[in-house]
Amino acid sequence: MQNVVEMNALVKKFDERTVVQGLSLAIPAGACFGLLGPNGAGKTTTLRMLLGQSPLDGGSLHVFGLPIHEHARTVRRRTGVVPQMDNLDPDFTVAENLRVYGRYFDLPTVVLEKRLRELLEFVGLSDRADSRIGTLSGGMKRRLTIARALINDPELIVLDEPTTGLDPQARHMIWARLRELRTAGKTLLLTTHFMEEAERLCDELVIIDEGKLLEQGTPAALIRRHVEPEVLELRGQEENIRAMLAGLDGRLENVGDTLYYYARDARPATARLEKQLGTSFMHRPANLEDVFLKLTGRDLRD
């Protein structure tokens, strides 16, 4: 399958600080591709370069087979963007936001009006078409931003943390819409630090930190590759827990007030723990968050 995005040894510097250090990746057409990393890992900068909004300091970047620095306009004509921070036009209503934005793509009025109605339907805002932006909830604004990103019927949709700050209902609705877009054959590129979101949506993902690629693969493959399949989250006296689990072949990690016990089979451990009072634990399958924390470390980022 053809790649929609190809980055090769991409470099970006801000003054003396190198925020993207030789990043290479390829995004196949029709995939939902996740770009994961802690705050400051270089995710947003990478997206900005991809849209021609930030000049490259090294390497090459092709979108739809076109070098971005010469073809930014063409690339953006075929791309939809959901930015991290809402930048809807507060002076306009919901429908006007879409109409004005659609004109930036030189869409003929007939096409624009038809698509506008369909998109309002798609994101569940038909009955709010004449509302001012200030009266919308955070979830509605996000949905409108997604509708706006689709106004040019893009082949590639770039979403920078699409569900940050939303309640679970709004998040699930957005996930459902993104899956529909994926089914409709669109290529999706999203950044997130919700591992659950990445696990649910992404066919393939990369984890980056300090502008470098740490890992790449499907969510399931990454979990298999990096962590044991079963996890116990334990709270209680650390020495007691360590003593109780001594001799078992699992791996213990300490994060804040919680101990994580990673094992191929956690049953011997749970058998011992159930006999002990004063220790609460949760038994769950390993997930992407375990991989993420293992690869990017457990230090706090800002």
Partner: peptide
Amino acid sequence: PQRTYDAILAAPIE
């Protein structure tokens, strides 16, 4: 403050 240009610069406008 309004970030209108950020939005416009995601369209094919320079």
